[in-house]
């Protein structure tokens, strides 16, 4: 693969359209609004809807898709 091809392929991935979900770590909570600030490995932070995963704690790892936590990441179910 050429550098140009690799660059193009990596640069334009739309996380939502690709059905991609990322494991993010909870850094703070806004329990009243049902939201959490979560951070990724690259240190980016985003506000995440947590209604689908129930009460979460700071430090917990969540699978986030389109700004919504869709699962907790953890041991096999």
């Amino acid at each position: 693969m050429t550098d140009r091809a690799r660059e193009r392929a990596g640069a334009e991935v739309c996380l939502t359209c690709g059905d991609v979900a990322l494991p993010l770590r909870v850094v703070s909570l806004d329990a009243d609004r049902g939201l959490a600030r979560c951070a990724g490995a690259d240190c980016h932070e985003e506000t995440v809807e947590i209604a689908l995963v129930g009460p979460v704690a700071v430090g917990e790892e969540l699978l986030v898709h389109a700004g919504t936590a869709i699962a907790r990441v953890g041991a096999d179910r």
Binding site: T16, C17, D19, A21, E49, A51, L52, H65, A66, G67, T68, I70
Partner: peptide
């Protein structure tokens, strides 16, 4: 809004 069942709950909650 587009997407399969993965994205639909996010739209619904919004």
């Amino acid at each position: 809004a587009i997407g399969f069942e993965t994205t639909a709950p996010s739209t619904a909650l919004t």
